[in-house]
């Protein structure tokens, strides 16, 4: 028996909104420690990794490890029907060929129940090595969203360069060029609005803005996002998910392969 109940059901809604257009089908791996998912987009340029700790749920029971393969667009479509204040419960028997989703509006005496068919997916699982990144940038997630959105009006790719004097995001296209320079913020009065930049070694790398705009759909999950970069390796864009007490209950990490000069 598998059962996971999330009182803040909007977290599940937001996670699905953040991955459904990037990955069409994927498997959730459920164990006593929590639920996780790893999948590449169809063109194999990016990888998304989601983790939700068992502690992050209000009730969590997993008697046996389960792999729940499903169409994420269908799941997102159903979960979209849940209200933002709804409690969401996911249930599956051990030999599941479907899962049950239960939505309970907090103030009402109603229960909405949906069943979703499961799929057998032969998904490739990638081993991601521990990496000491040369550059780590923490910035407000809405700022990152805006940088990606605005620069994609000009060009298809962004060049991120980080050196002692700060980080620059730049792009060029047919109509011209644009760039955004970020400096570390001085005070920690508003941690959500802070920009912190750690540079071990300067880097300059280019990435497709199309994917970064996809990743920015996770903005509602966290006020801050981190970008980790090293020469010639994929960029990591991480949104850490917190509960009401500000404890970490999971994350969405997106990995994006760099563009290289031919």
């Amino acid at each position: 028996m598998f059962e996971a109940r999330m009182v803040r059901g909007f977290i599940i809604k937001r996670i699905l909104e953040a991955i459904k257009d990037l990955v069409s089908e994927a498997s959730w791996d459920c164990s006593t420690s929590g639920m996780s998912l790893q999948a590449m987009d169809t063109s194999h340029v990016s990888l998304v990794s989601v983790s939700l700790k068992a502690d992050g749920f209000d009730k969590y029971r997993c008697d046996r490890n389960l792999t729940l393969g499903m169409n994420l667009a269908s799941l997102a479509q159903i979960v979209k029907a849940a209200g933002n204040d709804d409690v969401i419960t996911i249930k599956a028997p051990d030999d599941a060929d479907k899962i049950t989703l239960i939505f309970e509006p907090k103030s009402e005496t109603e229960t909405w129940e949906y069943e979703i068919k499961l799929m057998n997916l032969d998904s490739e699982y990638l081993g991601i090595p521990e990496t000491d990144y040369s550059v780590k940038i923490n910035l407000p997630s809405h700022k990152f969203q805006r940088i990606c959105r605005d620069l994609s009006q000009i060009g298809d790719s962004v060049t991120i360069s980080a050196a002692k004097d700060g980080v620059r995001f730049s792009t060029t296209g047919d109509l011209g060029s644009g760039n955004v320079k970020l400096n570390q913020t001085a005070s920690a009065d508003k941690p959500d609005e802070a920009v912190t930049i750690k540079i071990e070694e300067p880097i300059i790398l280019s990435f497709a803005l199309k994917y970064l705009n996809h990743f920015a759909r996770a903005t509602a999950l966290s006020p801050q996002v981190s970008l980790s970069l090293s020469k010639d390796v994929p960029l990591v864009v991480e949104y850490v998910i917190h509960d009401d007490d500000d404890d970490e209950i999971g994350y969405i990490r997106y990995y994006l392969a760099p563009k290289i000069e031919e």
């Binding site: 063109s43 194999h44 990888l47 990638l126 081993g127 994006l256 290289i260 031919e262």
Partner: peptide, 14 residues
């Protein structure tokens, strides 16, 4: 001219 690399060329398939 830059070209897009693939993510599975960086990480090993398990």
């Amino acid at each position: 001219k830059s070209s897009q690399t693939r993510i599975d060329s960086f990480f090993k398939v398990l």
